[in-house]
Structure formats: C-alpha cells, structure tokens
C-alpha cells in the first residue's frame, strides 16, 4: 500500500516512516503544508496520515482540496489537539479516522490498514492470513473452513495483530487498544496474557499454526516465520 505521511515533527515522522516502510508498503513524506499539497495534487495514495497543525497551513485544507478534486484517498488525521471541533470537522470533511497524539505505532498501523482495507473492498471484504479467514463485515473467523468463536476483545486483538504482523506489539499498546483510556495499564497485563492465551488456544485447536510469540516479556509478535 502507498502511504503519505504529512507530519512536521521530524522525530515522529521518521518513526512512522520506519514502522510503515516494510513489506508491501511504500511511504512518502511531506513536512509542511505546501509540499503536502503538491504531493496530493499529483499522486494518489491509499492512505494519507495527516497532521493538522502544519507549517504554512491547516491540514484540514488538504482534505478540502482532496474532496474538491474528488480524489478518493483515505485520510487518517493525527493531531495533538484533541479538539472535538477538529475531529468533527475533519470527519465531516471526509477523513476516515482520527487519532490523537500520542499514539502507539501499532495502533496507527492497525487504523491505516483498516482504512485501506475498507476502501479497497468497499467494506465488504474477507481478510485472509494463511489458513485464517476473517469476514470483516460479519466479524466471523473461519480456520480451515471451520468457524471459530472469538469474543469481541479477542477478535479485535486478532485483527490488531494481523495488521501489525512481524512487529513487536507492546503490552501498553495492546492495553490501550483493548481498553482505551479507561483502565490503568498495569492492572491489565494479566488480562492481556489471558486473552492472548485464549486466542492461541482457539487458533491451535482449530488447526491453525501458533503465530503469536511472546517478545521478551514486553509484548507479543504475530509472525508466520
């Protein structure tokens, strides 16, 4: 997938670029409003990761520009301003999602993947990872044509892992993905462990490989290698 990262903060931009620039992804970067506008005027992207506060302009104008030209690029807004106005305006203008800084790269990846997936299959898609077959519309998982029941959190976690396959996903990121801001992270590490144990058990019992590996006590890695 082809991604444009519009972010003026070099530290963050590089991190995102490194995280995404692997496998089948191609990343381009823009560090201010003008260069971003120049890029989106010429090239099409599967998803644009867009910071709203940019030198020389407001990121919202880039969305306006896209819509005015009927470009159908996916847009994910990342902003430090957890301003509800911006969120509402952004989503109203046609952005696909909104992520507040600070975020985990794995969360960003999972959101971007979801946007790209939705756009390419019109939301009516099946995600296939080796023998795991996920009907995204019905939220059904089948392994070797056998239906496997996952709880809501397990399902969400499985998708999260697949979107971040080959990456170490930290426990903090998992906790934030599953519970949001509501629970203290430290309380949840045990629960993460039991959720993951359940997922692995269900996958293996249905005849799938065990793709989830513990990563040095910091997190987990979903990998088929």
């Amino acid at each position: 997938m082809k991604i444009l990262i519009v972010e003026d903060e070099p530290g963050l931009r590089e991190s995102i670029e490194t995280y995404f620039n692997e496998g089948d992804s191609v990343c381009e970067i823009a560090y201010d409003f003008t260069s971003a506008l120049a890029k989106v005027s010429v090239y099409r992207y599967d998803c644009i990761i867009l910071d709203l506060t940019l030198p020389q302009g407001n990121g919202l104008d880039i969305i306006r520009h896209l819509k005015a030209n009927q470009y159908n690029d996916g847009v994910l807004i990342i902003s430090a301003k957890n301003s509800l106005d911006d969120r509402i305006i952004g989503l109203d203008l046609g952005a696909d999602d909104y992520l507040t800084k600070p975020f985990h790269l794995s969360e960003l990846k999972s959101r971007v993947t979801a946007i790209v997936r939705r756009r390419s299959f019109n939301g009516n898609s099946t995600l296939i990872f080796n023998e795991i077959n996920i009907d995204l519309a019905a939220k059904m998982v089948t392994i070797n044509k056998q239906s496997v029941k996952f709880t809501r959190k397990e399902y969400s976690l499985l998708l999260y892992f697949i979107a971040n396959k080959g990456k170490v996903v930290s426990k903090s990121a998992i906790a934030e993905h599953l519970w949001g801001d509501s629970i203290d992270i430290a309380d949840n590490f045990d629960f993460i462990y039991s959720h993951i144990k359940n997922i692995r058990k269900k996958l293996v019992e249905a005849g799938s490989n065990d793709y989830i590996q513990a990563a040095y006590g910091m997190g987990y890695k979903f990998t088929d290698t």
């Binding site: 903060e9 963050l12 490194t18 975020f103 790269l105 170490v168």
Partner: peptide, 19 residues
C-alpha cells in the same frame, strides 16, 4: 498541549526501539 508532541515522539521511538 505542547507536552503531547514530545510524549508522542518518545512513544513512537519506544515502539521503534522494540522492533
């Protein structure tokens, strides 16, 4: 507000580091 940016950089660097 201003703190959010450095925090998000630390966060993303950590995510990068563990890879």
């Amino acid at each position: 507000h201003e703190l959010m940016t450095p925090i998000s950089i630390i966060n993303s660097k950590l995510d990068t580091l563990v890879q």
